[in-house]
Write a protein that binds this DNA or RNA. Structure first.
Lengths: 137, 137
DNA sequence: TTATGTGCAAAACATTTGCAGGAGT
DNA sequence: ACTCCTGCAAATGTTTTGCACATAA
């Protein structure tokens, strides 16, 4: 999962990581691009993709593949789950104590060598609940 | 989740559903297209996409959004989880009795109105384990 | 008959890649 | 110097869409 060998410390890399660490949202590559571009106007989208993938491979950040069409990235790497608003597409962190037992349960129920799991909840976020509420009235 | 109003019973729809129900794999739209095309050579890929989406919206089939670049479809609609081989990309069903409690845990831990959840395990399938094994020897 | 659905091709997106020049070490 | 990295643009892969014709109801 991690091997940060000959990986140079470039300005682009630093700023991408800094900008990602600033937010608690789970931006898409394109959103990271927009954030970074304010400080590095000439950066290319390809560079953003390349570096996000590299950092995810090295375990420095998390690449989360949830519902929706785009991948999302997360500077928080301790184990946690996500919840996604089906109305606005927003992805939030969620801390719930499920964990652990379920990998061995999966190993018992399959012929797979289990590497990990990811839980994605879906629901309606508070903002969208309120919007629904007020549009009814 | 379901409203099958003026939804016509076309040959294309029937055959797409039949072919999807035949397999326990979780084919991508393109794989369904290939399967269906053997019986309906002139069907368009757009039709396959349109109908898979329609059927998923009506709750007749399941659209599963797991890791990887393509969406996958599943004619099995009772609640169950999936496991994905990180080596070959295959997605299998997996039946484990986690379920239920975790939605209320998520509701307690968030401001969301919880609609559901999906668990995706990742691992190495038996075939790929054996390939690894024999390439080492 | 008429609203819905289909085939086809083009468009829209998200992501990856080739390459010539640029920058860390 | 010598790689590795970047910006740019083009290519790729997946999904969606517009439109004229076809078809289930």
């Amino acid at each position: 999962m991690d091997h940060l060998p000959n990986m140079r410390l470039t300005t682009q890399r630093q700023i991408i990581l800094e900008e990602l660490a600033k937010v608690t949202s789970h931006p898409t590559a394109n959103e990271v691009y927009d954030m970074v571009r304010k400080r590095l106007p000439r950066i290319g989208l390809g560079t953003v993709y390349r570096n996000l993938d590299l950092m995810a491979d090295s375990g420095v950040i998390l690449k989360i593949e949830v519902g929706g069409t785009q991948k999302r990235f997360d500077a928080t790497i301790y184990p946690h789950y996500h919840i996604r608003c089906t109305a606005c597409g927003k992805v939030d962190d969620i801390d719930i104590p499920v964990q652990l037992h379920i990998n061995s349960a999966a190993a018992a129920a399959s012929c797979y060598e289990i590497l990990g799991h990811h839980i994605e909840f879906s629901g309606i976020c508070r903002d969208c609940q309120q919007k629904k509420q007020s549009s009814v009235n």
